[in-house]
Design a protein around this nucleic acid. Structure first.
Lengths: 216, 216
DNA sequence: CTTGACGTAGAACACCTGTTCGCCTAATAT
DNA sequence: ATATTAGGCGAACAGGTGTTCTACGTCAAG
């Protein structure tokens, strides 16, 4: 066998990884299959494809299928360095409807997204955004056109500002949530308004508000 | 002519640049010609090629000829830096005081600044930010702790949301401003509240609100 | 009007590119 | 000994991809 395992990588796989890293650092774009073939000294494109699949299984690479230059080294540090997050706007908040949740399609849609400075959303990753329509969120100090950046979660801690859907009223709102036994206290952001109480069974937590953006 | 020059870029060229930047920030690789075509709403690949040549001449792009995904924004570092603006937080809004204006010292101070995605503040450059203390801005739908990003200016257009200082009351607030003869109509952002009128001589416009950020 | 520079549009071309298929070799397991 | 698995190879295919060519339209200057 011609393999010299490094970790669990064969010799060819190691050469491919090295070449991709070298290529990316020189060219800022990933190489094509045939560039890998020649650069890493692989005999055929099918062999490159073969090794790439193995490296993908080993979680060392990400690939965009059927896309040129679709191989990317998995480099979480680099992603972390990125200063701007693209947050998909997956829908709208309307008081009489549940808050939309992100799905795969919406995530892929590059048209509707807001860019948020990473420093605004400390480390949170899986975010989505909602556009507020109308003035039904006025007691959350949120007006028509505002963008609410949310983190998907079904449970929140005391004092979190969350999107809650009140099943008995068929209404979604943004409130600060406090657990009080079997009830929840929902407190409007507007301090001039009074909190009210609901049975925990009639409430669905749909996400936590991470930040609010208002373009003027 | 369908062009609306922005700087020295035509409308199409601007859309292409925006799309490429968006695409790169989301996908880590540059788009193909046809992805640009559809993403930027260009009618044909030849048109994309045509515009790309122009953008290359304008030194905004680098291209690898005859190579897939061979278009790269010039000086990625700079573009990367520019995707986030550092806006200095120069002070606080307190209803009983004039809104602070940025000075050289404050601008140098890198400690107190917020990062704002450039796409949030379309092109504006000389911005400063204020932190809202207390709930005096409740009628502007702004609560304690919010960050208001401002653009310094002394005159605003009808409907702009501006920081105004009422000299006769010795009070600063954020209101939408409408010129009505010698008076100004000041309209709270909260639609449930009534506008009121002041003599233009008793008002100092201190800046225009560009966006509002609320970390939760 | 003519001309020339610019912008637009569609199609075609030639090459690039990821993928797959069939066949091979060698080592290991049954 | 046979089957199985992993690694390897070349060729071909289908669609992606950058490029170029032709034709058309607009507008301002000569």
């Amino acid at each position: 066998m011609a393999n010299t395992p490094t970790g669990s990588l064969t010799d060819s796989q190691q050469r491919i990884m090295d070449f991709i890293n070298r290529y990316v650092s020189m060219n800022d774009v990933p190489p094509t299959i045939r560039e890998i073939q020649h650069g890493a000294g692989i005999s055929s494109t099918s062999m490159v494809s073969y090794h790439l699949k193995a490296l993908e299984r080993a979680n060392l690479l990400n690939r965009r299928e059927r896309s040129s230059r679709g191989v990317m080294v998995r480099d979480p540090e680099r992603v972390n360095l990125r200063s701007v997050l693209n947050v998909p706007v997956v829908g709208r908040i309307v008081a009489s409807e549940p808050v939309p949740m992100p799905d795969a399609d919406a995530m892929r849609d590059s048209e509707n997204s807001v860019q948020v400075a990473r420093s605004l959303v400390n480390g949170d990753e899986d975010l989505y955004a909602l556009e507020v329509k109308g003035n039904s969120m006025i007691d959350a100090l949120i007006s028509d056109g505002d963008i609410v950046v949310m983190k998907r979660m079904t449970e929140v801690q005391n004092g979190d500002l969350a999107a809650v859907f009140l099943t008995d009223r068929n209404e979604a709102t943004l409130k600060r949530v406090y657990h009080e036994g079997r009830r929840l206290r929902l407190k409007p952001e507007n301090p001039t308004m009074q909190p009210f109480y609901v049975d925990a069974r009639h409430v669905q937590i749909q996400g936590k508000v991470v930040c609010v953006l208002r373009k003027v």
